[in-house]
């Protein structure tokens, strides 16, 4: 499938009917979603036949794009049942299989300092660690809850067996590169993109706003052997 074709299909993905500002719900545009998944698929082979997790899946556009490019299993995590309901409808419309888990990704994982070395703030998805090949996310940027972008990113890196694809404000690039080094993962700035945010909340003064975002890819090494 060509990039343009993918972007064209994604125009039909329904978005939030009543976005919640507290959760920084901004729909990932078809343009961004197509670029992300097309690159993950064609350049890095991280989608076809893979198990893919979508953190803060919202209306599901990243997972739908992944499924269209041949992912074998999709699961989305979100705290908002209304968003999941829209995502479910989108999947039904596109005839895509995807599971959803209603869960809170915002809790900061505590350092592993308990007797048995287990982190205090755990999620229900601890057992998914290393089982999901590829993690996708367009996390909240942290304009409402400072640092939430890094909490999402760390969780994604923990869960992924191999690669994480994420979007972040370009202004946070240096910080993220430093963190990636700390976490022992490779980080590549795949592209610098424009995130065109249409006016979605009352407090927005402009009809639309372009912000610079980095399309980042993180890779964990070494890639575990597969039996195929």
């Amino acid at each position: 499938m060509k990039l343009k074709e993918l972007e064209g299909y994604l125009q039909d993905v329904a978005v939030f009917t009543d976005p919640k500002i507290k959760l920084e719900q901004y729909p990932t545009t078809p343009h961004l979603a197509a670029r992300m998944l097309y690159t993950a698929h064609t350049t890095y082979d991280d989608i076809e036949n893979k198990a893919v997790g979508d953190m803060g899946c919202g209306c599901g556009i990243l997972s739908i794009a992944a499924a269209m490019l041949g992912s074998a299993y999709n699961v989305g995590f979100d705290i908002d049942p209304d968003a999941i309901a829209i995502a479910q409808e989108n999947c039904d419309e596109f005839e895509i299989e995807m599971d959803f888990i209603l869960t809170d990704l915002s809790a900061t994982p505590a350092p592993s300092n308990t007797a048995d070395g287990e982190a205090n703030a755990r999620g229900p998805y601890e057992m998914m660690k290393g089982k999901l090949d590829t993690i996708l996310m367009n996390p909240p940027f942290g304009t409402k809850l400072k640092g939430i972008d890094m909490v999402f990113l760390k969780k994604g890196i923990d869960l992924a067996n191999h690669a994480v694809y994420s979007l972040h404000k370009t202004s946070t690039r240096d910080h993220i590169l430093k963190k990636a080094k700390e976490w022992g993962v490779e980080c590549e700035v795949v592209a610098e993109l424009r995130y065109n945010l249409d006016k979605s909340y009352k407090f927005h003064k402009k009809q639309s706003l372009d912000i610079a975002v980095d399309f980042l890819r993180f890779e964990k090494k070494p890639r575990p052997e597969t039996s195929s």
Partner: peptide, 18 residues
């Protein structure tokens, strides 16, 4: 619900399934 079978994926999941 019927779904298309993906043998490569299943093989890769064998050691991940509890």
């Amino acid at each position: 619900e019927e779904a298309e079978m993906n043998e490569d994926f299943l093989r890769n999941m064998l050691n991940k399934i509890e």
